[in-house]
Design a protein around this nucleic acid. Sequence first.
DNA 1: TTGTAAGCGTTATCAT
DNA 2: ATGATAACGCTTACAA
Lengths: 347, 347
Amino acid sequence: MVGQAGGKQPTINDVAALAGVSKKTVSRVINRSEFISEKTRKAVQGAIETLGFVPNPQARALAFRRNFLIALLHDNPNAQTVLNFQQGVLDAIKDSDLALLVRPVDRGSDRLLDDVRTFLEKQRPIGAMLLPPISENDDLAALCETLGVRYVRVGSAPLDDPQHCVSSNDHDVVKEAVRRLVDLGHRRIGFVRGPEGFRSAAEREKGFREALADAGLSLAEEHYAPGNYRYAAGVEAGEKLLALAEPPTAIFCSNDEMAAGVMSVAHGKGIAVPGALSIIGFDDSPTATHIWPALSTVRWPIRQMGVRAAQLLVPDFLGAGAKAIDPDPAALTSTFVERQSVAPPGR
Amino acid sequence: MVGQAGGKQPTINDVAALAGVSKKTVSRVINRSEFISEKTRKAVQGAIETLGFVPNPQARALAFRRNFLIALLHDNPNAQTVLNFQQGVLDAIKDSDLALLVRPVDRGSDRLLDDVRTFLEKQRPIGAMLLPPISENDDLAALCETLGVRYVRVGSAPLDDPQHCVSSNDHDVVKEAVRRLVDLGHRRIGFVRGPEGFRSAAEREKGFREALADAGLSLAEEHYAPGNYRYAAGVEAGEKLLALAEPPTAIFCSNDEMAAGVMSVAHGKGIAVPGALSIIGFDDSPTATHIWPALSTVRWPIRQMGVRAAQLLVPDFLGAGAKAIDPDPAALTSTFVERQSVAPPGR
DNA sequence: TTGTAAGCGTTATCAT
DNA sequence: ATGATAACGCTTACAA
């Protein structure tokens, strides 16, 4: 309440003096100890409020040997994803004493593990969140375990025990999206893959192939294009697939950025979208709605996943409000979003 | 070097014992005190290395009354901008002991100041970086000053003393971009504005109007559209401007997202871009290259600005490497990037 | 140039 | 249920 501009912040000693108790008792109130009488708790609470006392996190960190921080470790090509996830985490920890430390890492570096180790040993966060693709690195998870840092891994499929993992259902939802193409009458459906070594890329491909198989179709070799989640790869894929004598009438791209690349090629060649070519992406990134025609895609509930990750990581630190957010598991499900880039074939 | 998995980390006492000096001497070495003989420094350094000693940041924070953190405060609608800036900051602090704390705030909240105050008092970062639009809030800067937290403000124009400010030259570069349209022969040039109350929006409008004035033109009332940096505003603006009896032959949009909206409307109406309509955006966001045709825009050196912000904020904490990055002021200049969305009028 | 003693603001231990 | 005292690991002030 007070917080004099220049003046000193009140300390636990001030509170103890005012409440007429020992500092340890104040500490107990702060840390919600059970062994304390309701009466003294009230007295201490009162003193805390009149003084406007806020426990010093640095001192607590020293005594606890742990900082009240959550670390977000990522090496993510998609800024929007990282920031949306951040936002979800922040939604969840808003009313807690936690803060968010961001740490981009280089998954290509051979010192990745050492870097992360040093970082965690120094900062000593309560826990760490691992975003894909580094979430797929088992050594990283083991390292957290070793260092006594809680962790949660975010992925396109279950990567770990349920309590260490927030995962989306990429496989199922891609299947649904492709089934929609089949239902519209498409038979020649192209596929643009994500990068090798990414679990998400593998999951999406699996869903794609299963949808085709379910419809009695299969992916023609010539309708397959490799990719790396970048726009340029989409352009390359588009140039390959749309130059065929019998080009696909629909193309599923493993993310929106590559879908935008394919769409550019279509525009350039005068191929009408969706009249002559349907396109589906994945991510529901800003790009999906910014391009024309608007892209059908898969919406990945990344912000909700951030909330869930925080709930999993630090349930004991969150306020009641944060615990209540998103009790619905359906909110964590990816969904297919149909927009103007999809239509029946050969219209 | 050591870092036994379960074992204790070595402390300053261990180093002192091994080196045969007092802990204060070790402290002096850590903190690069001048008053120390080369001989003992070497000895201490040796002990530090053989033990693999890393000073405990929590303890230092307590003693220093300051955390070795930089806070990034933002309320930014553009994820890419925030993340690119983050990246720049991280480039700069990579070899230092600093870490980056991210704090989104709500500029609409009437508790903004209190929230930030609480945050800064708790976390006690060395310094804070304010991204636009909250960087334009003088009270926030004053608050940092009061709390003894260094600060740097990032903006579209100088917002503060040079040592507290990293700014881009929005005004000049917009002028250049619009001049390019004039040079191509455009006379009816539309303008889509950014949100009221944003300095960047004002700067861009100023540059736009000056470019027209320099060419002896002026902005017709009907060629002006308000906006808010969102796609939907671009759509609205496009629908207004392109429905005119004499529509503009070129439209300058105050950011890429709105430019994408205008472009969608053009596509929908069958207006060829750039054949019948040239469009320019601002930001060089991913959207600029993902849409078709690729958008001419202004590239804002946001990552470099992150580096510069860090250099300004904590020069005394950066390694030699970080200080050397980007000595070229030209690297901090926004530039006009011409892509396919611009051509002579009425082709 | 180096060392000693006293914090920094909190929690842990072990009494009572 | 509460309190005295010693950590936690480092820095500052003041001596030497």
